[in-house]
Simulated assay, not measured.
Amino acid sequence: MTDNTASTPGPAGDQAATAGPLSGIRVVELAGLGPGPMASMMFAELGADVVRVDRPTPPAITDVLDRGRRSIVVDLKHPNGPETVLRLAERADILLEGYRPGVAERLGLGPAEVHRRNPALVYGRMTGWGQHGPRAHTAGHDINYISLTGTLAAIGRAGGPPQIPLNLLGDFGGGSLYLVVGVLAALHHARATGQGQVVDAAIVDGVSHLSAMIWAERRYNGWTDDRGGNVLDSGTPYYDVYETADGGWFAVGALEPQFYARLVELLGLPEWADAQEDRSRWPQMREAFRSAFAARTRAEWEKVFDGTDACASPVLSWSEAVHDPHLAARRVHDVVDGGDVPAPAPRFSRTPGRIAEPLGHRGSRSREVLTDWRVAGVDELLAEGAVVQRDTPAAR
């Protein structure tokens, strides 16, 4: 693996720290899937010591975002299983869980129990629907959460069905990132006052807040519920994607007049220079753009637009993005465990984050974690089966 410090140079003479900005912060993660693990991975990449509490039975779905933390296997059905987690929480700054409402409480690991042991701890809760409301106890996934907020209905072309934006918008945009922001804000408060609190991070809340600009556009600038009929949803010819001669695609985002002028100049369509806001001519403009892009390959258009302010760029696949000159120059990707992974973001000039290594085998570091965190009764917890130490590859 190559080293990626994800940093930018500081003033002359400064030396970047070897640990991230969250060095010294301890996080307990109750194992889950999706947005919770993504948040935990971000904490780890920023330097926190993250310990994931796994259960003895392997999950039906493998967590692919398990990098950057140590695993301890705890039997939460054992009389001393929850007690083990509470002992970890006593020494932690943050606890993260993504269960349905009430599950952590039934396990004896709800906020009240944890705060009795550690009043300054930040308790982060990650759910789709939130901790209360008619849907709070029902199952759902990214597509369900964004469907209820209005955002899914807004994505797609006129006359077509809503288009699914992978699970980036709900799980990770409205989920993980809002959990991280909320927990860090609460941690700042806890450090200043000694008072911990609960952070209720719900995807429906986060996605709705993430859409603040669109809500403002609806109120002030005439944004409508007609899919594919607005400025940023393919409603305009100068904010869209066009197919090239070789079956590739080019993205156009020439919103400002000066960028639009450069676009039509480089497309060889000077006759459209004064027609940007003439909606009556947009169908013809779109056809002119479509014909122009279809006349050359994607590579040829890349040469035309390279280094210009036309706001036109090739649509790259995942495998192509790794080799893009700009992303490569910024070292946006690295290699971990034989595969490409994104580097930590954002970047810090003094305390750079680092690529998180794979988790390893579930429970392979149980004793190590308990010892490092100075949890009392390590031998007893292992001997009685409340905590499981595993050393074989099959245990992952």
Score class of each variant (00 low, 15 high):
I25F: 09
L46D: 04
G36I: 03
P165G: 07
T138K: 15
R218H: 14
R296V: 04
G248T: 05
G13V: 01
E302Y: 11
G194T: 10
R362M: 01
G206M: 02
S313Q: 12
A104H: 09
R219F: 09
T84M: 11
M42I: 15
T2I: 14
G360T: 03
G20I: 09
L359F: 11
H137R: 15
L95N: 04
G102A: 08
P21T: 06
T127V: 05
I203H: 13
P393F: 07
H141D: 00
E243S: 12
H209N: 14
G174A: 03
E277R: 11
T84P: 13
N167P: 06
H361T: 04
H188Y: 14
T224S: 03
T8M: 11
G10R: 08
P393M: 06
W373C: 11
D278Q: 14
G338Q: 11
Q15Y: 10
D63V: 02
L267R: 04
T392R: 15
A261S: 14
S291C: 12
G182Q: 04
I146Y: 08
A6F: 02
V378Q: 00
I72Q: 05
E287V: 07
P9D: 04
L121Q: 05
G98R: 03
L184H: 10
A251D: 09
H141Q: 07
T297W: 02
L109M: 12
G108N: 02
H209V: 05
E243V: 12
F293K: 02
D240A: 08
G385D: 01
V207S: 03
A158C: 09
Q163N: 08
A17N: 05
V53C: 13
P237M: 11
A310K: 07
R354F: 04
V180C: 08
G173Y: 01
G173E: 00
I72M: 11
P101N: 09
V114F: 15
A92F: 03
T244V: 08
T193H: 04
P358L: 07
A16K: 12
A292F: 03
A356C: 15
E320A: 06
E217V: 09
V332D: 13
L121F: 07
V378N: 01
P134Y: 11
D246E: 00
G13C: 00
R296F: 11
D226A: 13
E97G: 13
P21C: 07
E243C: 07
F259R: 07
V198H: 06
D233C: 01
G182W: 03
T57I: 15
A44Y: 13
S366G: 09
G102M: 08
E368W: 09
G98W: 01
V180T: 04
P352T: 03
G206C: 05
R396M: 04
E271N: 05
D226L: 13
